[in-house]
């Protein structure tokens, strides 16, 4: 009972990882998404809070089934989350009515994992890209379509009248990016945009996303399972496990000093491309077992069943997001001001 109360209290407080800044474009607070599976209710996303500042790229990583893609879609209100707030440029999207939501949502756009299934096979490329412009009756549609096509590296004269099946996966992903840029959004949510692509094409798309971010001043939420890809593109990284946020912070901090045992295990699992690095992780805890069922998550900390450091407390109480201890005291003034690293763990690794 008391545990429940403390949890409640912590819910009411503002989550520690949310920043007090003027340039926050997107803020997600206590996001919960439930799915009905048969008669059961599965909490796919549980109390996730995060924010993204203008021009920032937030990487959202985790294994399959951790709810990272669901967070991306819930931000878009596709479908709307069960509870929680999604504040985009000061307005809460979850409280908007249909028409208002339709209009506000154009500031957020999304690209998906499977570029081929994200393009309507029966429409021409130029119509696909111009769709948003048509809907909102924007002026100079043709010029805008040409511009974004050129920006993503498609030849407007050659590609405009063709249909998606005449393009390779990488080209299709370029079309998707062009489509999402046509309406000049503030935020681009990328849901595993490169995981369906060949290794050699993946780099093209990652570079393109970086270029587009510069050119159109985009803020990005980049959902992916590949930690190396996320590191490459993100300013900030959030790690999810079984619907919960475990750790969030500056990319370099997370990768250099992972504080959550799960983050550490994830990093240790990455196959190293350098065959000489034979220090592998004998000294690091290796993750055992499989993901528990999201329908029946473990009590307390959801990671405890696979955590090498789990103790009795972890089963009793759910850890709350807190600033990673230690870094503040040892750091110089400079480091302190730039400090941005939060972890939800009773016994963070420092």
């Amino acid at each position: 009972m008391t545990d429940m109360n403390t949890e409640r209290q912590s819910d009411n407080q503002k989550p520690a990882q949310l920043r007090e800044r003027d340039d926050i474009v997107l803020r997600v607070e206590n996001l919960v998404v439930n799915f009905a599976v048969g008669k059961q209710t599965v909490q796919a996303v549980s109390n996730v809070s995060l924010d993204v500042a203008r021009g920032e790229t937030l990487g959202l990583v985790g294994e399959s089934g951790c709810g990272k893609s669901t967070v991306g879609r819930a931000i878009m209100q596709l479908p709307s989350p069960t509870s929680g707030e999604v504040i985009f440029k000061g307005q809460d999207l979850t409280r908007m009515s249909g028409e208002q939501l339709r209009q506000t949502r154009t500031g957020l756009q999304m690209i998906f994992q499977d570029p081929i299934s994200s393009l309507n096979p029966r429409r021409k490329v130029k119509d696909i890209i111009a769709e948003g412009l048509h809907i909102w009756r924007r002026p100079n549609q043709e010029a805008r379509v040409r511009e974004v096509m050129e920006a993503v590296g498609l030849d407007p004269d050659a590609a405009a009248d063709r249909r998606p099946h005449q393009f390779s996966g990488g080209q299709c992903q370029r079309i998707c990016i062009a489509r999402s840029l046509a309406l000049d959004p503030d935020v681009l949510i990328c849901d595993e945009p490169v995981s369906a692509l060949d290794v050699s094409v993946q780099a093209q798309i990652l570079n393109l996303l970086e270029d587009m971010k510069q050119r159109y001043q985009l803020t990005m939420v980049f959902v992916a399972h590949n930690l190396a890809v996320v590191k490459n593109i993100s300013d900030r990284v959030a790690v999810m496990y079984l619907g919960k946020l475990c750790e969030i912070g500056d990319t370099e901090a997370i990768y250099a000093r992972p504080a959550h045992p799960y983050t550490r295990a994830l990093l240790a699992s990455i196959p190293d491309i350098d065959p000489d690095s034979n220090l592998p992780p004998d000294h690091l805890p290796l993750l055992q077992g499989d993901l528990p069922s999201p329908a029946n998550p473990p009590s307390g900390c959801r990671f405890r069943t696979r955590c090498p450091h789990a103790q009795a407390l972890c089963a009793d109480r759910e850890p709350v997001m807190q600033a990673v201890p230690g870094e503040l005291t040892q750091g110089s003034l400079e480091q302190r001001s730039g400090k941005d690293h939060f972890v939800a763990c009773h016994f963070p690794l420092v």
Partner: peptide, 14 residues
């Protein structure tokens, strides 16, 4: 289920 339907919704299609 295809993502182009989601994409259309995201662009504000009725």
């Amino acid at each position: 289920q295809r993502e182009y339907v989601l994409a259309a919704k995201a662009m504000g299609a009725s």
